[in-house]
């Protein structure tokens, strides 16, 4: 009996936490499936967006935060635009990714997360993204050296990947913004 009570407790708290973090009223979802029907990456997800919301309502935290779905979402916002209950699922996905990172749950789609990290670190270094160093950083993190070598070379040959970064003057300002945002 005790374990059931515990499950219900963690379950409710996960739903409440997801609601609070995203600012979205997830209890409104009545499973019309519009989000999943329009989602460009749903066919590649382990849990479809509508099921993800149901699982949050049921408190299945580990499965939700450990899913590939939260990382395969590309924030195209088709779901949130079409939801009849005005649930902004794109914002919910951001909140879930943030929760997964904080809880130390390894990203099921590790490379997607590593690419985001490499991108953000590039901004931290120079204030702007520098594609060449960002991509090298990503390749070193992911150890995935062979994927997309050809498109990368094509861009380089077209002069579309400058070798030298253009750092901004206000790099200290950017660092301060990063520090303050990372502390919260």
């Amino acid at each position: 009996m005790e374990s059931v009570v515990e499950t219900v407790k963690t379950g409710t708290s996960f739903l409440e936490e997801a609601k609070r973090r995203s600012g979205e009223d997830l209890s409104l979802c009545y499973q019309c499936l519009k989000c999943t029907a329009g989602c460009p990456t749903a066919p590649f997800m382990d849990v479809r967006p509508n099921n993800l919301i149901r699982m949050i309502q049921m408190g299945r935290k580990e499965e939700v935060l450990g899913s590939s779905a939260i990382w395969l979402c590309v924030s195209c916002e088709t779901c949130g635009t079409r939801c009849p209950n005005k649930i902004d699922i794109g914002v919910l996905m951001d909140a879930l990714r943030e929760m997964a990172i904080e809880e130390g749950i390894p990203a099921k789609e590790r490379n997607i997360h590593l690419l985001h990290e490499a991108f953000v670190q590039s901004i931290k270094r120079g204030g702007r993204v520098h594609e060449a160093t960002m991509l090298i950083d990503y390749k070193l993190r992911s150890r995935d050296f062979l994927t997309d070598l050809i498109p990368g070379m094509m861009l380089f040959l077209k002069g579309k990947i400058p070798l030298f970064p253009s750092f901004i003057k206000g790099r200290e300002e950017i660092k301060r913004i990063f520090e303050k945002c990372e502390k919260k």
Binding site: E98, L115, H116, F119
Partner: peptide, 16 residues
């Protein structure tokens, strides 16, 4: 000016 942050940033740190 600095980078807008793109989707990568709101996937990691929404405040940033």
């Amino acid at each position: 000016w600095n980078c807008c942050g793109a989707a990568a940033t709101h996937s990691i740190n929404r405040l940033l």
